[in-house]
Design a protein around this nucleic acid. Structure first.
Lengths: 341, 341
DNA sequence: CCAACCACTGGGAGCGCTCCCATGCACGCG
DNA sequence: CGCGTGCATGGGAGCGCTCCCAGTGGTTGG
């Protein structure tokens, strides 16, 4: 078994005794209640420092019926997100945003239906004060279930049309538009796209950006040449093959992710096309592989760590506000120009 | 503030009432104590199922003076580890290994001295039952400090010579030896290496493997051609330049990480060497970029997710055994042959 | 001069569990 | 038949905190 008994940690009671005040007062000082005289506060703070007192989290949680923890839920259906540093960036950002609170960050992998049920039980039992959800599919019922139990929740990468939830997102439409516009102004006239899985909002947005840019392109609207992928490299290859077959004269491709762009590069090279001379390629995400392809990949950068930080901030707000309002934050994306297009 | 008051969750007391037994008995059932009659146990289990009872973690932690949580500590000094999927694989493995326990996984980023102090306080206050440490430098005092407070700890990537701690590691020496041996038997005679930062045990091990393989190589011992890097791509470039200058006739390079190997590839290509015809290149880690280089990179794979799983297992054991023994697990590595050498 | 009011403060009553001692009961032995 | 012995069980006593109510002492106004 686990080591039992006193850990030698000082308690509230001991701090109170040393400071010559009551338990309640010390509690008030710790929780920043304004109803404490300044002189008393100093006294207590001194005692806390002297004893090296650290509040017992379990006791606080029990007495206050909260948990001092938030969960970062990762639906493991999307392995691809891990092949990119997306995940660790998010974690860093969130960690950063939570750094000067007392909230613990719980990592919750939801890979199977069983794990999902287990997580929901956790949530229902209020073992967590809030939830951060990343990489969600449109069809995922998690947000609604969490809303149903009045659990503060923040999504990254919202779902289509659903505004009754807080989310932090990057400007996928704008990013895609910028990418295609860039291709357009650099003289490309026959621009195709490889989409992500269209049951994901990000994929829909990037497609929309492409379509808007193609429609509004200098020199009048042009047809949209679309092939579908699922964010994997293999799907990028396949989609590129389809595109080459249908439109052998294409001179540019916008892929909705770098990983698919890499697949497209391979197919293009195998087909003997020179990049970027004959075909320009632009990706999305600006993941590290973008710098390791040959030629290096032009891509749309999203501020992932910043997104994590913002998610934490929004969640903190909705925990303390009691979810009185939804917050939607959309962060700017940026085109990073490299050699591929 | 957070929602207060009853969460509607049933309590031990209520389960006991429904089952017609006492609190103690229900507690015993939940904790798998053998001192309960089977008929009673069934009764209680039924009541638990009927009410959908979930034990209150905070109350358990408080009453039992433990915390039901383990920390995965990531010293953020090594950003590079995140550029590879190492981190997410570890997290997955650990999550997996913890899946059917009640332990929470706390993600703890230790980026600054302040965060380090804060983490130590947590540990000292027994807010965690155990610690998993990854990506440690030799000089890091964390393991000793944790040992000093009798905190169960498992490292991944041990430190040099220190056996008085549990660790899970992959066979870096063997992997490096295999890589170099492979170069050797495929006819390479002038094999250089680019090391990692030698204050890290993994880097030392990979260098040792190289040296052993070079010494024992078919056709008699050969000189060791060594340049030092720090696991970054830039350092790989630089080290490769040095090597080319010192040994223009080299015909193979073993880089202690894929990222450095990528740097080496760039330098070699810039110097006009054909790969693998003139110079063979082998990396380490088998990270995704290994498949995105041109030519694709031969590399040594370590079972990272398996390492995470094993770390969890070892930690669980040492939590329940009260750290009576150190466990050392070394997992096999595997050479993945691709086009580069 | 007393009532009314205020800003602070002390400490009782739990939160839901685990630990552990006391109790009850059935059994077996002298 | 009386008394240990041992297992199964009930429930008291906290764990360290927060919440909240009942003071305490000082101030103001009638």
């Amino acid at each position: 078994m686990v080591t039992k008994g006193r850990t030698g940690q000082p308690t509230l009671e001991e701090v109170a005794a040393l400071a010559g005040v009551g338990r309640g007062t010390v509690s008030r000082v710790i929780n920043n209640s304004p109803r404490v005289k300044d002189t008393t506060r100093h006294l207590v703070e001194q005692a806390i420092a002297q004893l090296g007192y650290i509040p017992n989290r379990a006791a606080r949680a029990l007495a206050g019926s909260r948990s001092d923890a938030v969960a970062l839920v990762i639906p493991e259906t999307e392995k691809r997100f891990f092949a990119e540093p997306y995940f660790s960036d998010i974690v860093h950002g969130v960690g950063d945003g939570l750094a000067d609170t007392d909230l613990q960050l719980l990592l919750t992998l939801v890979r199977t239906e069983k794990e999902r049920q287990r997580f929901l039980q956790y949530a229902r039992a209020r073992r967590i004060d809030g939830v951060l959800l990343v990489s969600l599919h449109d069809s995922d019922p998690l947000p609604d279930l969490l809303a149903g139990m009045e659990m503060p929740t923040v999504l990254s990468g919202r779902r289509s049309g659903d505004e009754s939830v807080s989310y932090v997102d990057s400007d996928n439409v704008g990013g895609a538009r910028a990418a295609v516009h860039h291709l357009s102004v650099s003289g490309r006239r026959r621009i195709a796209t490889i989409t992500g899985p269209l049951d994901m909002y990000v994929a829909q947005c990037r497609l929309r950006g492409y379509e808007e840019a193609v429609r509004d392109s200098p020199g009048g609207p042009r047809p949209a040449w679309i092939a579908h992928g699922d964010f994997t490299e293999e799907s990028g290859r396949r989609a590129m093959s389809q595109l080459l077959e249908r439109h052998p004269d294409l001179d540019a491709v916008f892929a909705a992710s770098d990983v698919m762009a890499v697949g497209a590069l391979h197919t293009l090279r195998a087909a003997g096309r020179r990049i970027p001379e004959e075909v320009a390629v632009v990706g999305f995400d600006d993941s590290p592989i973008a710098r390791h392809t040959d030629p290096q990949l032009t891509s749309v950068r999203q501020p992932v760590e910043e997104m994590g930080r913002t998610m934490a901030r929004v969640l903190l707000a909705s925990i303390s506000d009691g979810a009185s309002a939804w917050q939607h934050v959309v962060l700017r994306t940026e085109l990073v120009r490299r050699a591929s297009g």
